[in-house]
Design a protein around this nucleic acid. Structure first.
Lengths: 143, 143
DNA sequence: GTGTTTAATGCTAACCATTTGCATTTAGAC
DNA sequence: GTCTAAATGCAAATGGTTAGCATTAAACAC
């Protein structure tokens, strides 16, 4: 059995052609994609799909931790990628929207210290860096 | 001259009663407020105001750095507070939505290191912790 | 103060990402 | 193949935010 459909099996989700298609698209890219990005790519295959199905599939995948989501400040859309096993942070380019993954997490120790100081039970954190990627730094100089 | 209206002066914004009102409401609270929260509070004063005015005022305030914004993961609304001089992070309660400010920033050094490693020019970062505040931890236990 | 100019406001409709309701289709179990 | 619950398509609804345009009000000159 293919690795991709195994994910659905493990998650106890029915293997539908739409779910397999969305999984395949996600598996083929390293970028974060919005629901609409996925919808557009899915339509390009010969499978017919509706946008609400894409949303419903993404919701179920998020619940089962098959995908992870990224909320970019000041952007209204949610972005999705295949979930990695590891906790990660991101460098987000303000110009071209590209995202660089960082696997290293500098604040795990800090977090447990926080919990004590504020008596706050931290469940997760989000740490995102915004700025300009090397490509966009160059093109800005040339303007 | 009052401190509040001085902010408008410094920012080169006309002193209108609506702007002064929004500033006053922001100055009176330590919480983050959504545009709608502000709209509701503003209506309770005797000044007539429309929601689009609230949005426009907040946009101008954000541009002039009079307010700072908070984007909470999985929430569609933007939250606003009077801008503090200092960079801060937050503990956000998943239950009661309360926000605790943390002035300490654990990643300034890390950030400059990142810039070198990835040749990425970091302009800012957002670091938010999600979990349960002490009050909500207690009420969860009692359920 | 009055007049003038330009920005701010109110109102309504538009927008965009996302969600929902409901009828139809399909996967999976028998 | 039959059955049943879950998945899907479609269209309409939702919620936060933005835009267009006519009206009002600051700010500045006089």
């Amino acid at each position: 059995m293919k690795k991709i459909s195994m994910q659905l099996e493990k998650a106890n989700l029915k293997k539908t052609k739409h779910r397999l298609l969305i999984l395949k698209i996600l598996a083929e890219t390293n970028d974060f994609l919005s629901a609409d990005d996925l919808f557009i790519r899915a339509k390009q295959s010969d499978t017919k799909i509706s946008l609400s199905t894409v949303y419903r599939i993404l919701d179920s995948f998020a619940e089962k931790k098959i995908v992870s989501t990224l909320n970019i400040d000041n952007s209204k859309q949610v972005y999705y990628e295949m979930a990695h096993q590891e906790h990660a942070h991101h460098l987000i380019c303000l110009d071209c929207q590209s995202v660089i993954h960082i696997k290293d997490c500098p604040i795990h120790d800090y977090q447990s210290q926080l919990s004590k100081t504020y008596n706050f039970q931290v469940k997760r954190h989000s740490l995102e860096f915004y700025g300009y990627c090397s490509k966009c730094q160059k093109s800005k100089k040339n303007q």
